[in-house]
Amino acid sequence: MKNTIKLTILTLGIWIMGMGMTQAQDKFPSQIWHKGNIYDTEGQAFSGLVKYDLDNNLVQLQNETIITFTASNVAYFEIYDELYGGIRKFYSLPYSLNGDYETPVFFEVLTEGKDIALLCREYIATDSRNMGAWGPVGMNPFWGPQNMMGYRLAFNYYFFKDNQIQRYSLKKKDLYDMLPGYDDEISLFMRKNRLEHDKRGDLLRITAYYNELSKN
């Protein structure tokens, strides 16, 4: 009898853990709380559970209460993303999203070197190709397309160079303009490693490689 009870409790525990993971994976990263830190413009650090909203450039801290920060009073924040893995950092930088005037905007920093940094902003897009699909598809550390119930995680990419944030068009010819001076080396690197010019993880590797080349 005792063994049966223990087995039942163990099975129930595994089931609850599995349900928790399923519920977390049924959401996108911006829809769940992550362990993290927020650093304000005064240099003060706040630790707790962090949730971000890039559409409105807000970040929330859940500790004893919930505090909401805007990009105007945050220098940067970092989270540990258990869903996709790894520490992610978001910096508040002046940029004109709508073409009018610059305001503080959150950008995730994917990789940075002495001269160039690769930034991105994620958003949730409608994916008509996967309408009716249930659960996440293709989850991996390099973040290929994520699909959930007809929606997908998408990204806009930017390069910080010459003290300016420049949006990347996702056209291959423009990649060489963003990373000038090493066209042959980058082309060979992409072919050897089967890298695409418009994938998150591939762009990260290409930019990191460029920064290594430009050190010499």
Results as ranks from 00 to 15, higher is better:
Met1Gly: 13
Asn3Phe: 04
Asn3Leu: 12
Ile5Leu: 15
Ile5Gln: 10
Leu7Asp: 10
Ile9Lys: 03
Gly13Pro: 02
Trp15Met: 14
Met17Thr: 15
Gly18Cys: 06
Met19Ala: 13
Gly20Ser: 10
Thr22Pro: 00
Gln23Asp: 05
Asp26Tyr: 01
Lys27Trp: 00
Phe28Asn: 02
Phe28Ser: 07
Ser30Val: 01
Trp33Lys: 02
Trp33His: 01
Trp33Ala: 08
Gly36Val: 14
Asn37Lys: 15
Asp40Ile: 08
Glu42Met: 10
Glu42Ala: 13
Gly43Cys: 12
Ala45Asn: 11
Phe46Thr: 05
Gly48Ser: 05
Gly48His: 00
Val50Ser: 07
Tyr52Thr: 09
Tyr52Asp: 04
Asp53Thr: 06
Gln60Asn: 10
Gln60His: 09
Asn63Ile: 10
Ile66Ser: 01
Phe69Cys: 09
Thr70His: 05
Ala71Trp: 00
Asn73Tyr: 03
Val74Leu: 04
Tyr76Val: 02
Tyr76Asn: 14
Phe77Trp: 03
Phe77Asn: 06
Glu78Trp: 02
Glu78His: 10
Tyr80Asn: 13
Tyr80Pro: 00
Asp81Ser: 04
Glu82Thr: 11
Tyr84Lys: 06
Gly85Asp: 03
Ile87Glu: 09
Ser92His: 05
Ser92Val: 04
Ser92Thr: 00
Leu93Arg: 12
Tyr95Trp: 11
Tyr95Lys: 11
Glu102Pro: 08
Thr103Leu: 14
Thr103Ile: 07
Thr103Met: 15
Pro104Lys: 02
Phe107Trp: 04
Phe107Thr: 06
Glu112His: 12
Gly113Cys: 12
Asp115Ile: 03
Ala117Met: 00
Leu118His: 03
Leu118Phe: 09
Tyr123Gly: 08
Ala125Phe: 05
Ser128Thr: 15
Ser128Met: 03
Ser128Asp: 13
Arg129Asn: 13
Arg129Gln: 13
Trp134Ala: 13
Val137Ser: 14
Met139Phe: 01
Asn140Gln: 13
Asn140Leu: 04
Pro141Asp: 01
Pro141His: 00
Phe142Trp: 12
Gln146Ala: 06
Asn147Gln: 15
Met149Phe: 06
Phe155Lys: 05
Asn156Gln: 07
Tyr157Ile: 14
Tyr158Met: 13
Tyr158His: 06
Tyr158Lys: 08
Phe159Ala: 09
Phe160Gly: 01
Phe160Arg: 14
Phe160Gln: 15
Asp162Pro: 03
Asn163Cys: 07
Asn163Ala: 09
Gln164Asp: 15
Gln166Pro: 01
Gln166Arg: 08
Arg167Val: 11
Lys172Glu: 13
Lys172Val: 14
Asp174Gly: 14
Leu175Met: 07
Met178Leu: 11
Met178Phe: 06
Met178Tyr: 05
Tyr182Thr: 10
Tyr182Leu: 08
Asp183Arg: 14
Glu185Cys: 12
Glu185Phe: 05
Leu188Trp: 08
Lys192Ala: 11
Asn193Ala: 02
Asn193Pro: 02
His197Met: 03
Asp198Ala: 01
Asp198Lys: 06
Leu203Asp: 06
Arg205Gln: 08
Arg205Asn: 10
Arg205Trp: 08
Arg205Ile: 04
Thr207Glu: 03
Thr207Leu: 00
Ala208Lys: 01
Ala208Thr: 15
Tyr209Asn: 01
Tyr209Leu: 02
Tyr210Met: 10
Leu213Cys: 09
Asn216Ser: 10
Asn216Val: 00
